[in-house]
Design a protein around this nucleic acid. Sequence first.
DNA 1: CAATAATGAGTGAGTACTTACAATCTGATT
DNA 2: AATCAGATTGTAAGTACTCACTCATTATTG
Lengths: 173, 173
Amino acid sequence: MTDKKENIIQAALELFASEGYNAVATSKIAKVAGVSEGLIFRHFENKKGLLDAIMQDAEIRISQVFAPILFELDPQKVIQKTLELPFSIEQKEYNFWKLQYKLKWEPEYHNPRKMKPVLDKLEWAFAELGYQNPPLEAELVIYILDSIAIAILREGLQSQLKFKSFLVSKYNS
Amino acid sequence: MTDKKENIIQAALELFASEGYNAVATSKIAKVAGVSEGLIFRHFENKKGLLDAIMQDAEIRISQVFAPILFELDPQKVIQKTLELPFSIEQKEYNFWKLQYKLKWEPEYHNPRKMKPVLDKLEWAFAELGYQNPPLEAELVIYILDSIAIAILREGLQSQLKFKSFLVSKYNS
DNA sequence: CAATAATGAGTGAGTACTTACAATCTGATT
DNA sequence: AATCAGATTGTAAGTACTCACTCATTATTG
């Protein structure tokens, strides 16, 4: 990957995340990336192709975030590590996650399969710990974390830190 | 309000909710509303003014949904009624709520003040019932309901009904 | 000297919005 | 009832502009 191609992806990610895909002109992406507009279309088939490339990178980064949970063998720790997920988002990755959540409303890019492995692992953990309804407990945790992640992305980590210990103690059997 | 003005609002609401504000052309709104494009700009200052008008209607409808909770005096019932909120969304109001959630990412239209009265009432209810951390319990409930509402809007009521009794029993002290 | 990377003015389609004009409604006066 | 002026509601065809995308040309590299 050339430097300029990477510049384009970074600029597009930043602009798509803050202003939305449709609201951002390719001319603006080129300007922010310090690149000619034509170069965008040399590297990507079209504007949507650029978005697709960004979202493809996403899959890898997301699976890397989930890995430690999937390899954990202690059910209690599975739950704790999951609960701590949204609080460990790196600031420099905020744009990336903002885009993920914004695109959840576009059916084409909303892919619940991404969460499936974590959901399954959580369900297993709740079952191990003797919870009455592991599938719903697991789904509920995902729901809570989604809302907290969104709040962090919008209002900053500080505003939501209070939930970290609150949740962990709530799920400490 | 004339029939055609109402047509414009309905068409715009439907299109904004399903395709997003920026992605919808005023010419398309006019077509769906069965109206000339110019009429949009007679009734509304500009495209954004049309969105504003839609969102103003929103305030009223939202406060009507919240009213029964705010007048409730039994803390246990306050919690139960709140938990049941997302399951009582009328199908014909789906577009309206979809737009509300989509616009949450636009700072201009994301207004947490709307939820404040319910949040306060919930906090009071949890305090009455002797919960250890009423403010966080209240905020957590709102988070859960947000996620469930979004899931209902995306996947339908049926897919989430399982949570109704699950949540109510979870908060039955 | 190829081959590739990069440019940026140009293109047609689509955009929000305007304008000039026509139809319809309102209600006060014959 | 009939009339009709003024206001309101509506239309069709623009206007200026922005957009995603192209292409002929130029720089860079191995």
